[in-house]
C-alpha cells in the first residue's frame, strides 16, 4: 500500500517537474513534495512508526524517490536556466535591412554585356576602334564616294584640323576595315562602341549613341546564315522566339543591303501602339560585305563572302527596359541609373 503511494508520488512529481515552465513553478513543486510539509517528507518522517518489515520495504523506496525528485529538479533547473527567453528576443523581422551603399551599372553597360555574352558564346571576338576616325576609315574605305548623297545619310561632326580630315565616327563600321586589315578569314567579330551624329536632341534623337556591329567573313557566308544568326541572337536577347524580316536598303559598304525588323516584342507581332500597329520594329541595317571593302582590307577580290550588321544599343535598351526618352541615358541622373 505504502509502496504504491510512494510510486504514485514519484510519477506525479516527475511529470509536474517535466512540465514546469519556470524556476518559480519548479520551486513550488519541490516544496510540495520535499518541503517541510511535503507529501514525501511526511512519509519519510513517518517511517520510524512503521513495523521493521514494512520499514525495510518502504524505507529505501522512499529515499530513492526523494533522490530522484531532487535530481529531476536540479536537471530541470539547469535546463530552465539555459533556456532562451524568446519573448525578450523578439524583433520585427519585417523591418528593412540596414542600408549598404550600392552602386548601379548604366543600362547601356547592362545591354552591352548581354550582347557580348551571347556573341562570345557563339565564338565571336570583340574589337574596338577609335572614336575620332579619319574621313578615310569612316567613309572612303567603306566605299562612300566623294561628294555623294550617301554621305548625307549620316549627319557628321567634323574635326577642325588642317592636316587631315577627321570625323567623330558616325558608325562602328570603320572598325570592320581596321579589323580585317589585321585578321584573315574565317572571322567572327563584334564591335560595340560610341558613335556620334550631328543632330538636335529630343525624346527620340541623340547626338551621342552606342552602336553594335557584327562581322562574319568566310568562304561561303550567305544571307541565309545572316538570317539564322540574327534570329538566334534576338531570341536569346529577349528570351523568347523572335522573328526577323529583311527589307531592301542601301549602304555603300554592303551589297545586297538590308534594313532589318524584328517582330514587336510588346505584342509579339499582333500590332500595338509600340509598333504603330504594324507588328514590326525597325532595328538596324545590314548587308553582304562589298567586295570593294574586302579589297581595301587587302583581301583578294571574289574570294570571300561575309555579312555585317549594326544596330543601336539605346534602342534595344529602350525596348528592353521600356525607357521612353533617349536623353535619359546621358542625363547623369541617379534617379534613372539606380533603377538598373
Amino acid at each position: 500500500m505504502l509502496k504504491q503511494k510512494i510510486e504514485g508520488i514519484k510519477s506525479e512529481s516527475l511529470e509536474k517537474i517535466k512540465k514546469s515552465a519556470s524556476e518559480r513553478e519548479l520551486y513550488d513543486i519541490k516544496v510540495k513534495y520535499l518541503g517541510r510539509n511535503g507529501s514525501l517528507t511526511k512519509i519519510l518522517k513517518n517511517l520510524k512508526n512503521l513495523s521493521p518489515e514494512k520499514r525495510r520495504v518502504a524505507g529505501p523506496v522512499a529515499n530513492q524517490v526523494r533522490r530522484d525528485i531532487k535530481e529531476a529538479c536540479q536537471n530541470k533547473k539547469k535546463e530552465l536556466a539555459e533556456q532562451v527567453d524568446w519573448e525578450k528576443e523578439k524583433i520585427d523581422v519585417t523591418l528593412p535591412g540596414r542600408k549598404t551603399e550600392t552602386g548601379h551599372l548604366h543600362p547601356i553597360t547592362l545591354v552591352q554585356r548581354d550582347i557580348e555574352k551571347i556573341f562570345t558564346s557563339m565564338g565571336f571576338k570583340i574589337a574596338d576602334g577609335p572614336e575620332i576616325e579619319s574621313d578615310w576609315y569612316n567613309f572612303t574605305a567603306l566605299n562612300f564616294p566623294q561628294d555623294h548623297p550617301a554621305r548625307d545619310m549620316q549627319d557628321t561632326f567634323w574635326v577642325k584640323n588642317n592636316k587631315e580630315k577627321f570625323v567623330l565616327r558616325t558608325h562602328t563600321s570603320p572598325v570592320q576595315v581596321r579589323f580585317m586589315k589585321e585578321n584573315k578569314p574565317p572571322l567572327k567579330v563584334i564591335i560595340p562602341g560610341r558613335v556620334f551624329r550631328n543632330e538636335a536632341t529630343d525624346a527620340t534623337h541623340e547626338h551621342t549613341l552606342h552602336q553594335f556591329e557584327a562581322l562574319v567573313v568566310g568562304d561561303d557566308v550567305s544571307v541565309g546564315h545572316f538570317k539564322y544568326i540574327v534570329q538566334e541572337f534576338f531570341t536569346q536577347f529577349f528570351s523568347k522566339e523572335t522573328k526577323i524580316r529583311l527589307r531592301p536598303c542601301y549602304f555603300p559598304f554592303t551589297e545586297p543591303s538590308f534594313e532589318f525588323d524584328i517582330n514587336c516584342t510588346v505584342c509579339n507581332g499582333k500590332g500595338c501602339p509600340s509598333c504603330k500597329g504594324g507588328g514590326w520594329l525597325e532595328i538596324g541595317g545590314a548587308g553582304m560585305v562589298s567586295q570593294n571593302v574586302f579589297a581595301v582590307a587587302g583581301y583578294p577580290k571574289n574570294k570571300y563572302q561575309g555579312f555585317a550588321w549594326g544596330f543601336g544599343l539605346e534602342r534595344l535598351a529602350m525596348m528592353k527596359y521600356k525607357i521612353n526618352d533617349i536623353r535619359l541615358f546621358h542625363g547623369g541622373d541617379l534617379r534613372f541609373i539606380q533603377q538598373f
Binding site: 549598404t100 551603399e101 550600392t102 552602386g103 548601379h104 551599372l105 548604366h106 547601356i108 553597360t109 572614336e131 567623330l168 560610341r194 556620334f196 551621342t208 541615358f329 546621358h330 547623369g332 541617379l334 541609373i337 539606380q338
Partner: peptide, 14 residues
C-alpha cells in the same frame, strides 16, 4: 568593383 563599392555608373557626353 566600383558598383560593389557603392559607385553608380554614368555616361557623360564626350
Amino acid at each position: 568593383v566600383m558598383t560593389a563599392l557603392g559607385f553608380s555608373e554614368v555616361y557623360n557626353y564626350s
